[in-house]
Design a protein around this nucleic acid. Structure first.
Lengths: 131, 131
DNA sequence: CCCTAATATAAGTCTCAACTTATACAAGGA
DNA sequence: TCCTTGTATAAGTTGAGACTTATATTAGGG
């Protein structure tokens, strides 16, 4: 429960350069080189850097790639974006996502009980890596 | 053009702990201490760390705070979340946000012209800080 | 075939931000 | 008035990841 795949997407969108890439792709597909050229001009970022960003976006499912000769044509991937939207629906004023009224009530009750505050067994854990 | 305030929100949501805080707040308001207790138990994170995360969320406009005695009651702020949704509407299959059909066409044409690739004046720029 | 063009990967550097502990501050209650 | 409880701020450390340059890879063209 509570495990969508929006994690990687949000991690990826946490970077302004990658957000810019997505904005460019929102207007239509583009070869990697064109994106690199635009980002080099506007932000002074090198081609390899852009390539690395594209890789992150790919792995987050936010972009699609299609080979065309030696070119890689990138496009925004609705699948990844949909997962982001789904995550946001939790906050949709009124109900909490795919839960029906009853489950919502149960969850709320459980939360309130948990929120009373009872903290002792402090497991361990150290740094939450997001490779 | 192209300057919404979704930037800070996405930067904030780029962190898994802050996302977790938002998920908790999606179920309802909670005092900082309760959030700290939950995150300590589940992720082993200290109270000051949580306080710092809450500060980031506050500055991103993603949460509201209300003082109640010595407690700070946090809640999800629709304003910030709305800005995130607005950014995502760029990708809404078909049209590009608040632009009408004509403007969309113009934008697309301009993009395609830009994407032809013409890069020379490599300004300077160094590291894109996001205080 | 080799050369060029388009992209990706390797390897290394350096900044930033997410943590830590310690402490300050504010609001009640005894 | 002090102590306690709840929260925020200060100061310092450290690992991740966003860059860099250099090089590998792949596809076509002459």
């Amino acid at each position: 429960m509570s495990g969508d795949g929006a994690e990687a997407a949000f991690d990826a969108l946490g970077d302004p350069v990658r957000r810019r890439v997505m904005e460019l792709l929102a207007e239509g597909e583009a070869p990697a080189g064109a994106l690199a050229a635009i980002l080099k001009e506007s932000l002074g970022i090198s081609q390899p850097a852009v390539s690395q960003h594209l890789k992150v976006l790919r792995e987050a499912g936010l972009v699609t790639v299609r080979a065309e000769g030696t070119r890689r044509i990138y496009g925004a991937d609705d699948a990844g974006l949909a997962r982001v939207r789904a995550w946001l629906e939790r906050f949709a004023d009124g109900f909490a996502g795919p839960l029906d009224a009853l489950e919502t009530e149960l969850a709320r009750g459980k939360r309130e009980r948990r929120l009373q505050g009872r903290a002792e067994p402090v497991r361990d854990r150290r740094r939450r890596g997001a490779a």
